[in-house]
Amino acid sequence: MSTTVQQQKQVDLPGQTYAAEGPHDQTGMYVMHHAFRRDLARFRSAARNTPIGDVATWRLLGERYGRFASTLHHHHTVEDDVYWPVLRRAAAERGVPGDLDAVSDNSDEHAEMDPCLDLCARAFAEMAEHPCEDHRNALDLRLAGLAELLLGHMSHEEHEILPLVQRVLTHEEFMDVEKTIGKSYNGKDIPFIVAWAMHGLPPADRDRMFALAGAPYRVLHALFRRGFERREARTFRYADQP
Rank of each mutant, 00 (worst) to 15 (best):
S2D: 11
Q7D: 07
Q8H: 12
Q10A: 07
D12M: 14
P14V: 08
Q16G: 10
T17D: 02
Y18N: 13
Y18V: 00
A19Q: 14
E21K: 13
Q26M: 14
Y30N: 07
V31H: 03
V31A: 12
M32T: 08
M32D: 02
H34M: 08
H34P: 00
R37W: 08
R42T: 04
S45P: 06
S45F: 09
S45H: 10
A46W: 01
A46R: 01
R48Y: 01
G53P: 04
W58F: 06
L60Y: 00
L61K: 03
Y65R: 03
R67V: 02
F68D: 03
F68A: 04
H73D: 12
H73Y: 07
H74I: 07
H74R: 14
H74D: 09
V78F: 11
V78T: 15
E79H: 05
E79M: 07
V82T: 15
P85Q: 11
R89M: 10
A92C: 05
G95K: 10
D99V: 03
D101P: 00
A102P: 05
V103C: 06
S104V: 14
D108L: 13
D108M: 13
D108T: 08
E109V: 02
H110K: 12
A111W: 08
P115M: 11
C116K: 14
D118Y: 03
D118N: 11
F124V: 01
F124N: 00
E126V: 02
E126T: 08
M127K: 04
H130N: 13
P131G: 09
C132E: 15
D134S: 13
H135E: 14
R136F: 10
L139D: 03
L141A: 15
R142M: 12
L143S: 07
G145N: 15
M154V: 11
E158P: 08
E158Y: 03
E158W: 02
H159L: 14
I161D: 00
P163D: 05
L164P: 04
L164I: 05
L164K: 04
V165W: 00
V177K: 01
I181Y: 01
G182N: 12
K183T: 03
K183C: 05
K188Y: 06
I190Q: 05
I190Y: 00
I190E: 05
P191H: 04
P191Y: 02
F192N: 05
I193A: 12
I193R: 05
W196P: 00
M198P: 00
H199A: 13
H199L: 07
A204G: 08
A204Q: 15
D205C: 10
D205P: 04
R206T: 06
D207L: 14
R208M: 04
R208L: 04
F210A: 11
F210Q: 05
L212W: 08
L212I: 12
A213K: 15
A213T: 11
G214P: 10
G214D: 10
A215W: 11
P216K: 11
V219S: 12
L223K: 13
F224R: 05
R231Y: 00
R237L: 09
Y238P: 01
